[in-house]
Write a protein that binds this DNA or RNA. Structure first.
Lengths: 244, 244
DNA sequence: CGGCGAGATAAACCTACGTTAAGGACACGT
DNA sequence: ACGTGTCCTTAACGTAGGTTTATCTCGCCG
């Protein structure tokens, strides 16, 4: 059984056995973190790269007036701060939403990974998919109605969680509050509440003991204008070298 | 005199002479492109990576109802689509705003560049700064008022253009229309117009024969809540190896 | 068992924007 | 000199979503 990280990186392309063993080894020492705890703060100059193995976390920035904008959700298999390898100091915060299992990967290990061509490309892929996701979020917040916006987020999470085996039959655990959705979607909590109720009233979503259920996935995707191309899940290719 | 690309990449770290020569050579063959022309479209699978040498371009997506969301401004020295090296198919469009001078860099050349450690890190840095900028744009659109939003954009462009020698004394050419600002900032053109007038009335900005002038840069930065940390312009370091 | 805090819900009211519709100022080509 | 198109500007009015305040439901802890 593959570990979560291998599973995620092989969405891009198969890895040599040696690389897979390195990843198995990398993922071995995890620690537990409470919900709503900061993993890293803006201005930090962290020594390790963090990887989420269990639970939900988010990137966020705080504004002078105390409001917070969440800019990304981090789910199992996601790197928190691969970029500090190059950028050094954090320009945003990362905090857990639910209790998490987290691995601290030393810089030397990342360096070792970047020296293996297949792994280096896989890491690059992760970082580019993060960027593509950010672009879609910008479109989401900038151009869609509150209803579509939230529906779109739920579709994205479904697909991302499916790839790591944490969602099936259009259902997954979503351990976040309406206030957190509000900080993500640039809406007020009250409006998030109104919108969720409307989505439930139209039977686009339901909740069954804590888990989100999407009764008709294609319908929710159509409703939200969801196009999964930005997640780049289908570029799998067997070649060990990029095409020329 | 350094070429624009070298100048930009050396913001991150100095490059070996051989790398600089490679860049000089890379930048030699540019072509001219009209304003308001698409350079690449969503779904394309381009064979070259494009680099802007002169003029303004933007990343954008189109929505079913015909509206467009601009997700990034590309100014001289910016790569349009470095990510296609890994992600293959474009998940968004890139179009010029003003007439541009553009270089098409073949994939083989990019591969050659990624095989040189200092250049590889510099390219990685470009891509990570793009991502950080996207995060700040998300905050900008999600959490700031229309006035702050536009002021923030103008501050960012000032800093980015300064680094490539295209702005000085708080002034630069801004060859874009209010409608384009609207598509960028998720506002209507009419509201952009209102906001620009208010910014002018408060003497935060003025226009002198086509160029934007910011009379008091610190004041505009304070007004918009601008913090340049996300541009990562100060991580310059002389070492040829990343720290461990 | 009773109090407390977090989260969801509800209804009233408010405002920053969007929309529509109409001019006006240039720059361009003929 | 006259149209024509593009961009900017103005004003009236409409609405999605914010704000405020309050209630309700739990789970939790003493």
């Amino acid at each position: 059984m593959d570990n979560l990280l291998t599973r995620k990186l092989e969405i891009f392309a198969p890895l040599p056995d040696a690389d897979r063993r390195l990843l198995d080894h990398t993922v071995r020492m995890a620690r537990l973190v409470d919900g709503r705890a900061d993993l890293i703060r803006e201005g930090d100059d962290p020594l390790h790269v963090r990887l989420i193995l269990e639970g939900f976390a988010c990137r966020y920035k705080l504004l002078p007036d105390g409001r917070r904008q969440i800019m990304a959700f981090l789910v199992p298999g996601d790197f928190c701060d691969l970029h500090i390898f190059i950028l050094r100091t954090m320009d945003h915060n990362i905090g857990t939403l639910s209790p998490c299992r987290v691995v601290d990967i030393p810089r030397t290990r990342i360096l070792e990974m970047t020296e293996r061509p297949a792994l280096a490309r896989a890491l690059w892929w992760c970082s580019l998919v993060d960027e593509a996701t950010l672009r879609e979020w910008l479109v989401n917040i900038g151009a869609r109605s509150a209803e579509q916006r939230i529906a779109h987020l739920l579709c994205e999470l479904l697909m991302r969680l499916e790839t790591v085996g944490l969602a099936s039959n259009g259902s997954y655990d979503l351990p976040i509050t309406q206030a957190e959705i509000a900080d993500t979607m640039a809406l007020s909590t009250i409006h998030v509440n109104r919108v969720l109720q409307r989505l439930r009233a139209e039977n686009l979503i339901t909740f069954k003991n804590g888990a989100l259920v999407i009764p008709d996935v294609p319908r929710l995707k159509a409703f939200s204008g969801f196009n999964p191309n930005y997640l780049h899940l289908t570029e799998r290719n067997g070649s060990k070298e990029p095409r020329r």
